[in-house]
């Protein structure tokens, strides 16, 4: 079976500095493959090289080393572009065209003719939730609306593979929800989706697999649960109506106690604090439980941890 996306040792150096340009490695031998029908989340902090990877796959950048293929064809093949969709990060289109005109223009480039153009354009605009605004020039569109236009143009040709660079950025909660549903719809249709994000919840909700990119290196890839074994770090408990007698005891049980307005208190408990027992005890002694939440490691924590490890390894490498 032909892989949807394959990258082999994909490397990109940029020259930094004007007078004495030094190479800066934005992407370091990325090897990766995505099977057809997968939704692949490409995760990493800002500046990790996610956009660089996507641009290499779109041949907006030429690799310093390595190669990539999409649907079995080398990137940049015009025939392959007929079968893919791409949404850039913070996209911008032409101020003086309307949404409809822009999409009709792209539809013509895809080789559609006549009535097919009109039906396709109105279908994708409906899909991304652009109504009457489609007749307005794009200069009057908000950032979120432009993002939707960007999604529409990526879906125009019923692509087999869709590349989305930070598709959720610039959207309000409703918009994020909408995009999530769109991606789930694509997944159901059997479309391969490759999207980058720095937000874990997006990945959790959508991805069959993820890759984590840190400082230009793929540090891990696989199922989300395998890659990120998010352990329980502790509990966050909010209580009210705590009697003075109870306070020293709470201080002993919790890692920290932070009083805030109306006699409420925020308690941080250790992971092994057995909250059920504590809760029973507290209610019995007249306290009122407001909320209890588990605290898990976040993607951000994970990044910080991995980045720290990478930096430390680099430093050791230099020292050796």
């Amino acid at each position: 079976m032909v892989l949807a996306i394959e990258a082999e040792g994909l490397t990109k150096d940029f020259a930094v500095g004007f007078w004495r340009p030094r190479p800066y490695r934005a992407l370091d031998s990325l090897t990766l493959s995505v099977e057809a029908g997968e939704v692949f989340g490409f995760l990493g902090p800002n500046g990790a090289g996610k956009s660089t990877t996507l641009k290499l796959l779109m041949q907006l950048l030429y690799p310093t080393a390595g190669a990539a293929r999409i649907l079995g064809q080398p990137v940049g093949d015009t025939g392959v572009r007929q079968r893919i969709g791409f949404l850039a990060e913070n996209p911008y289109y032409y101020d003086y065209l309307t949404a409809e005109e822009l999409l009709a223009y792209f539809a013509r480039l895809f080789g559609y003719r006549g009535a097919d153009i009109t039906t396709r354009v109105s279908r994708v605009l409906d899909e991304v939730g652009i109504g009457k605004e489609r007749r307005l020039r794009l200069r009057r569109f908000s950032k979120g609306m432009i993002q939707r236009v960007g999604l529409a143009q990526a879906l125009l040709n019923d692509p087999e593979v869709v590349f989305l660079d930070e598709p959720m950025s610039g959207l309000d909660p409703l918009g994020r929800r909408h995009v999530r549903d769109l991606i789930l719809g694509l997944r159901q249709r059997g479309c391969t989706v490759f999207f980058s994000s720095h937000i874990l919840s997006d990945a959790e909700a959508l991805c069959s697999r993820v890759g984590v990119l840190v400082q230009g290196r793929l540090v891990s890839s696989g199922r989300l649960s395998e890659v990120l074994a998010f352990e329980l770090k502790g509990w966050e408990l909010v209580v009210a109506g705590v009697s003075d007698a109870l306070r020293p005891e709470l201080a002993r049980l919790a890692r920290s106690v932070t009083p805030f307005g109306d006699g409420h208190m925020l308690l941080h408990l250790a992971a092994d604090a057995e909250p059920d027992r504590l809760l029973g005890e507290l209610t019995r002694r007249g306290a009122h439980i407001v909320s209890l939440n588990p605290v898990r490691e976040t993607l951000e924590d994970y990044f910080v941890q991995v980045v720290g490890a990478t930096v430390a390894r680099d430093e050791r490498g230099v020292g050796a």
């Binding site: 641009k55 779109m58 041949q59 907006l60 015009t78 025939g79 572009r81 007929q82 893919i84 791409f86 850039a88 913070n90 996209p91 911008y92 289109y93 032409y94 792209f106 480039l109 895809f110 080789g111 960007g150 143009q153």
Partner: peptide, 14 residues
């Protein structure tokens, strides 16, 4: 500069 070229050059056009 405004990156509108990204969308265009990823269409079937050289």
């Amino acid at each position: 500069e405004r990156k509108s070229v990204f969308a265009l050059l990823t269409k079937p056009i050289t």
